[in-house]
Nucleic acid binder design. Structure first.
Lengths: 146, 146
DNA sequence: CGTTTTACTTCACCATACTAAACTATCCAG
DNA sequence: CTGGATAGTTTAGTATGGTGAAGTAAAACG
């Protein structure tokens, strides 16, 4: 097998396994983590908006947010402007998640700092293109669905 | 946020979402895909050995292999040397999975071919180190588990 | 050979996360 | 105000993937 492809697959496996371990450790599901990602990108949003975004019913989101808040990953506040609504924000707190991701970030930063500026540019370029391809392929697969 | 970290998170999300889409498309779970990864790395192995490797009971592996064979990802053969045993191998066949991963591989190969040899070495080095860190961190988290 | 062990499958049961729908609280329109 | 719409939670039911143990077939042992 092409050594590049092999590396890519290993990275992919490593990423997925890391995510699984984090999920198991914090007591959140893969879907919960996806919702967290949506929330991180989008910023504060209501429970209903999140439900629409992740394609689940409001009821499911209640359970999801329960788990995420229990894990200390998300804050759930009543919207002062409309007290029926629940505003969700990614908790910037300490806690288990900060410990986990902080440690990863430290390692990654240290590793990256050993490259020259030019090398870092190459790496960033590669990552950007890879993300693009992955998103593209994900769309393609999802479109083929049934 | 550090642009490098941001890119890393995006890649991670893209990888996970790609995996989820593949799983949904082929009708296999995340666990199934992990087992497939084990099988790919290890080569042919018996159902019992796979069960031990992924930490599930033999009964669960039966169902898992059912799904994987149904998706055309794995072959299930009786071991001619010991006919109680079931030999599992990654199916190198055509089918939906080949179409999916083939397309991804084509895109990635084309993208990588645009870099010089030196650049490719930098990228490979980066990927290798990243995988190492991820595996390390995964171990760390799993160890912390109660 | 007959008994015991081994390898996988099958079965009954359990946990979990989902949906649909009833319920509660709040907002808005007349 | 009052009636209806909206936001989220709660609840009853469903699907799925897991465990543990019984069942089936093949190998190994004495």
């Amino acid at each position: 097998m092409d050594p590049g492809a092999e590396l890519g697959r290993e990275l992919s496996t490593a990423v997925v396994m890391f995510h699984e371990a984090v999920g198991a450790h914090l007591g959140v599901t893969a879907g919960d983590q996806r919702a967290l990602g949506v929330l991180a990108r989008h910023g504060a949003m209501s429970a209903g908006a999140l439900a629409k975004e992740v394609g689940l019913t409001p009821g499911a989101v209640t359970g999801m947010v329960d788990r995420l808040t229990r894990a200390g990953l998300v804050r759930r506040d009543v919207d002062p402007a409309d007290r029926r609504r629940v505003l969700l924000t990614v908790a910037d707190g300490a806690g288990a998640s900060a410990e986990i991701f902080g440690s990863l970030a430290t390692e990654m930063t240290a590793m990256i700092s050993r490259y020259t500026t030019e090398e870092r540019e190459v790496i960033a370029d590669y990552l950007t293109r890879t993300v693009e391809i992955l998103r593209d392929q994900t769309r393609r697969i999802s479109a083929r669905q049934r």
